[in-house]
Amino acid sequence: MAKTQLSFNLNGQDVDVLVEPRELLIHVLREQLMQTGAHIGCETSHCGACTVDINGQSVKSCTFLAVQAQGAEVMTVEGLASGGELHPLQAAFMEEHGLQCGFCTPGMLMRGYRFLQENPNPSEDDIRQGMAGNLCRCTGYQNIIKSIQKAAADINAADNA
């Protein structure tokens, strides 16, 4: 199948790849660009393990054509830490035992990253609603909620410092 030139910004770096028009972004990220943090859990947009951030929105990259990312700013879990420092969400997930097998974690972190910008002071119920598109089989969600609450507090404290 004829391939298309695709250029976008991934975690702050410009990338150019050749893709088939039918290729899904998750496959391009994982198999061409070797960013294997985002995972494939369901292929139907239900589980959210493939969640990445595109132009300031959470996107489930398993049902998103790679060519739709032409010229976009794409961020994956690999871009979350900066300058050798973990993002407060990453630190909070570790601190509050917000992960077990780790398979949903990159998607949870990327959705949490966008969610906390949409709602910097979420209640527990806000988190349950705002994160509802990401499934976890291991944690029972409770410690993920605590992780996001801790991250929100840490981010707000840093902003006010």
Partner: peptide
Amino acid sequence: RKRKEDPRFIQGKGNYVDD
């Protein structure tokens, strides 16, 4: 104590079979 496996998982550096 905090988990020793977490640093790789929170940074997208787990190594699952499809990786």
